[in-house]
């Protein structure tokens, strides 16, 4: 049975439609990532699944429960890491972990958990003294303390340093290995690519793509070519390459469906002028490229429909 089933979910705040007919399923034991720009409706969707908000319409089932009933048996089997929940600042890490631990029938050992999220040195520290990333780790610990079957992580690694992020990835992989289901949102596409079995991209309350990271990137037929130009060679002197290269940091990037032709034109041009092309790279598109293409085209489409009536 699927761990999460969502069908035609809708939610608006006043006039603003935030979730606009979303359907997806998450299989048991799967890590599922919800991606999308700020304000896309990810948190709203996830919080409906957690039982924090009510949908206007549509059906939702999580572990066979309707989250809106807020049944205790349901809450005992899920773990939640909210995007922005506070702590009681005058308590220590250990105290808060222990307090929350006492609420669940299945309990993870407190010390092991604190060790796992890397807060052992701060066990006895009051929350108000923790750094931003350390607070986020405490968030993660509190979400895990009841040994949940289903874990909701809303931007769990925001503010983590790179090594903490890799540790957290290891943690989520460990959870998947023990058969848990994870639904996470993130803005880090490498995180989604690394962790998620499947990814959904949400834009303006709709899911515009679902699939494994490989499937999403495979949808991109083109290949990304990037390079720099030697000092003193303006980009205007580049030959016709099929599509315009765009500035990307210190270099130039273009995506093309005909990499052989572009590379041929580029290298021929360089050899003619006796210059080198530093940092030349040819790669298949990453999830980030696929994401930007999806989000960008959704935004352009909407802008077209939004602007046209005014101009006419």
């Amino acid at each position: 049975m699927a761990a999460v089933e969502v069908h035609e979910l809708r939610k608006s705040y006043g006039d603003l439609v935030v979730v606009n007919g979303v359907s997806f399923t998450v299989e048991a034991g799967e890590v599922f990532a919800l991606l999308g720009p700020n304000g896309a409706g990810k948190t709203t969707t996830v919080e409906i699944l957690e039982g924090h908000r009510r949908a206007d319409s549509g059906t939702v089932s999580v572990l066979g429960f309707d989250p809106a009933t807020h049944a205790r048996a349901f809450l005992e089997r899920i773990g939640i890491v909210l995007q922005d929940a506070g702590f009681e600042e005058d308590f220590t890490v250990l105290e808060l972990v222990n307090l929350q631990r006492g609420l669940y029938p299945r309990r993870v050992p407190a010390d092991a958990l604190i060790e796992t999220v890397g807060l052992t040195g701060k066990r006895k520290a009051r929350v108000r003294t923790l750094s931003g990333g350390q607070r986020r780790r405490l968030d993660l610990a509190l979400g895990l303390v009841g040994d949940p079957e289903m874990l909701f992580l809303d931007e769990p690694t925001t503010g983590f340093d790179p090594s903490a992020r890799h540790r957290a990835w290891g943690l989520v992989e460990g959870l998947r290995d023990t058969g848990k289901t994870v639904l996470l949102t993130t803005h880090y596409l490498d995180e989604a690519e690394h962790l998620a079995d499947r990814v959904a991209v949400m834009v303006e309350g709709r899911i515009v793509a679902v699939g494994t990271p490989a499937e999403l990137t495979a949808g991109q037929r083109s290949v990304v070519i990037s390079f720099r130009l030697p000092r003193g060679t303006p980009a205007a002197e580049l030959p016709e390459l099929g599509s315009m290269p765009v500035a990307d940091g210190a270099g130039w990037t273009l995506s093309t469906a005909e990499p052989a032709a572009v590379l041929h034109a580029l290298s021929g041009w360089a050899l003619d002028r006796r210059i080198e092309i530093p940092a030349l790279e040819v790669r298949r598109p990453s999830l980030e490229d696929a994401y930007l293409a999806l989000v960008g085209s959704a935004a352009v489409e909407r802008e077209d429909t939004a602007v046209r009536p005014g101009r006419a």
Binding site: Y104, R106, V108, P109, E115, T116, G174, D177, T178
Partner: peptide, 13 residues
């Protein structure tokens, strides 16, 4: 980071 094994919960009422 320890993985799932170390974090297995024990059941209590």
């Amino acid at each position: 980071m320890g993985v799932g094994g170390a974090l297995r919960g024990s059941a209590v009422r």
